[in-house]
Write a protein that binds this DNA or RNA. Sequence first.
DNA 1: GTATATTTGTGTTTTAGAACATAGTTCTAT
DNA 2: ATAGAACTATGTTCTAAAACACAAATATAC
Lengths: 233, 233
Amino acid sequence: MVAKKKNVIDFSSSLPEIWRMLSDTEREMLRSSARIVHFKKNELIYLEDETPKELMCLFTGKVKIFKSGIGGRSQIIRIIRPVQYFGYRAYFARESYVTAAMAFESCTVCMIPMELIEKFLRKNGNLALFFIQMLSLDLGIADQRVVNLTQKHVRGRLAESLLGLKDSYGLEEDGATINIYLAREDLASLSNMTTSNAIRTLSNFVNERIIAIDGRKIKIIDEERLHKISRMG
Amino acid sequence: MVAKKKNVIDFSSSLPEIWRMLSDTEREMLRSSARIVHFKKNELIYLEDETPKELMCLFTGKVKIFKSGIGGRSQIIRIIRPVQYFGYRAYFARESYVTAAMAFESCTVCMIPMELIEKFLRKNGNLALFFIQMLSLDLGIADQRVVNLTQKHVRGRLAESLLGLKDSYGLEEDGATINIYLAREDLASLSNMTTSNAIRTLSNFVNERIIAIDGRKIKIIDEERLHKISRMG
DNA sequence: GTATATTTGTGTTTTAGAACATAGTTCTAT
DNA sequence: ATAGAACTATGTTCTAAAACACAAATATAC
């Protein structure tokens, strides 16, 4: 039997920022306490109200971070792409998770005990700054999102989501199709609208030749128009 | 002439968390580079697109952090009370400010060069953790706010804002009147609604004996009802 | 491979809240 | 002290988007 892949993970390329900032001893500690976990499509990675214990780094796959709101209506807060870190905010805030995370598709995630990370960053100013910068960027995005979701109309919000998905997950070989396979319901939850409205507005975009649809696959035809619609709200 | 108050600021009580974590040398450096600035009611403290240079700590007064959204429609993102730090996120993210800050009322603010703070926290794990924790708490609040502002109805959002104002600024001696003097327009901007709707909904709350109004002063009569309205959306 | 569940699509109805209009009231500046 | 500006209040109209209803098309499980 061939050696399992998980034992020969190249952390230096998989955990780029963190790995680079550590000393040799720290790297060894990290290597021995990190674990790789696989999640199937639609599997939950962590749940609201759980106690955060590990820093997670998405190696492969796609993840959504979501919140269940009023009357259980759930809302996607952000999406994670390889190689991004997630799951650490609540630990640092000394809170339970206020969000949940689910695999959009089959995923591999590296889990590192948060105690270890906290220990490292107390000594390692660069690592501390790295986390401060990630949190600061996310907070800026969250502030922007408040304005976008509350002030833009349905078309603007959907256009913005499509552009955001393209930014996060890129395009397929044809240079136009967004590289994600997403249910209309998720697209709606990301854009803060009902599923009906996501479907309807998507159809409108097709009629206006801004996008093309093949099942769940979305091809961007007129990106400039999308930008304009997103900007105008 | 009497010595100016600003020269005898007691940093140990005014900058509680940060001061406590510093060494004597660091304290001396901070003392010599910090400056105290006074802002009059409605004066701008910093502007969108400016370059962030200083950590700010509100000693006295009340401050709003706001963003101008689609078509210049402005929205209050968060409010600051004494003694809270603000104005540092954009520096850490290596961005320009994406928000602006304005004094609700006459304020004193302590300004500390961010370069100094960054230098300190690279060496000082506790200080780094302090900023990480503040950012993590704010990010959690921002995520919650996205759901609240997009899913709750007007009544729920207004009830939530009133309770938030009470939490931030407390009550007056009567144990019921919220200790802030706020225009309806600001209350609307905080709750993501039009001024008309803020006024109308406030009137409804008065009719329902949940609150009482005397000009801009708001007295909470039935806090339990407010909580219920806020929770139900 | 077929049955069942889920997702997608579209038309219709309803409603919350924005937009607008106008008047009375309270600040604020000189 | 008074004029003008800004804020508060309330009624009316209009509209975007939610809610609902029901096919049709896919996906998933057994």
